[in-house]
């Protein structure tokens, strides 16, 4: 930091640039608990009426709790699958002397960069053929598979930081390679697994296009699809309702993000897609 240079003009300029974002997110909250007179954006009454969707299910739509449960199930299952599969495969790529290891490593890097969303047409047709269309299981498997290359790559990075000597000591102590992984190495990468789990959970919770295409209807709808269909319905335009559902939907994301910022920033910076 060069002390003698004034910083306030920069802060001012950044504040002006950031104003639209701040405004949008501020009103996301404000509009859900207030009413404003038409044409104005200064609230004149406090109300909880926009939150009625929590206990009153509009006709023709699934209950918000059903949808929330689906979202939770979807995000929890994909993230669990991602950490299990990645923590296994990441260890192989980081530590085990397997044939074609270089090929696997290159494969993971290519898959990590490869835009899986381009495969959605084929996946859509395959799920229809094998009868997993419009099921949570189908879309969970697809989402987990798509997030997995990043997961493997991150887990490999975490394993790389575990000292080799710990593994060597383990096998000298008589433990099998499996026991060494399970009992000695996995505990060392716990924080990494947690970060990956959190990251994958948030990715799953936020996912829209996959459930929209692969599991769009009724019983298996997740929050993102539910909210999108609410917004797309031209007959019931109610911005305050959209925002209330939206706030309900985004709140866990914001809370987790603010609490575990430090865990997440590294992963986001390390190249998630978007």
């Amino acid at each position: 930091m060069t002390g003698h240079l004034k910083t306030w003009p920069i802060i001012l300029a950044l504040s002006i640039l950031s104003a639209p974002l701040v405004l949008m997110y501020a009103y996301l909250f404000i509009d859900t608990v207030t009413n404003s007179p038409p044409g104005s954006f200064i609230p004149n009454e406090f109300t909880l009426e926009h939150w009625a969707f929590l206990w009153h299910t509009p006709p023709g739509r699934p209950s918000i709790w059903r949808v929330t449960f689906n979202s939770l199930l979807f995000a929890a299952s994909t993230s669990l699958l991602v950490i299990v599969v990645s923590s296994m495969a990441g260890y192989v790529l980081s530590r085990l002397n397997v044939p074609a290891r270089g090929f696997f490593l290159a494969g993971v890097m290519v898959l990590h960069a490869f835009p899986a969303i381009t495969l959605i047409v084929a996946i859509f047709l395959v799920l229809q053929m094998i009868g997993l269309y419009n099921t949570l299981i189908g879309v969970i498997l697809v989402k987990a598979a798509i997030d997995m290359p990043l997961g493997i790559w991150l887990m490999k990075g975490f394993y790389d930081t575990v000292p080799w000597e710990i593994e060597m000591a383990g096998i000298q102590d008589g433990a099998s390679r499996f026991t060494v992984w399970r009992k000695l190495v996995l505990p060392q990468v716990k924080p990494g697994i947690f970060a990956l789990w959190l990251f994958a959970f948030l990715l799953g919770w936020s996912e829209f296009i996959l459930p929209q295409v692969l599991a769009p209807s009724g019983d298996v709808q997740v929050l993102s699809v539910y909210l999108a269909s609410l917004i797309a319905d031209d007959n019931n335009f109610d911005m305050a309702l959209f925002k209330s559902v939206g706030l309900f939907y985004i709140a866990p994301v914001l809370i987790l993000f603010f609490v575990f910022q430090n865990y997440l920033m590294n992963i986001y910076g390390g190249g998630s897609k978007g």
């Binding site: 085990l96 002397n97 397997v98 899986a116 996946i123 598979a145 099998s176």
Partner: peptide, 27 residues
């Protein structure tokens, strides 16, 4: 389970299956 090859094959299998099912086959 005590050799790199054996353990490696077991540990990488789930990832490999997912890749085959949801990357390779769709491509």
């Amino acid at each position: 389970l005590n050799s790199s090859k054996g353990l490696g094959l077991v540990l990488i299998m789930p990832a490999l299956l997912l890749v085959i099912a949801f990357f390779l086959a769709p491509v």
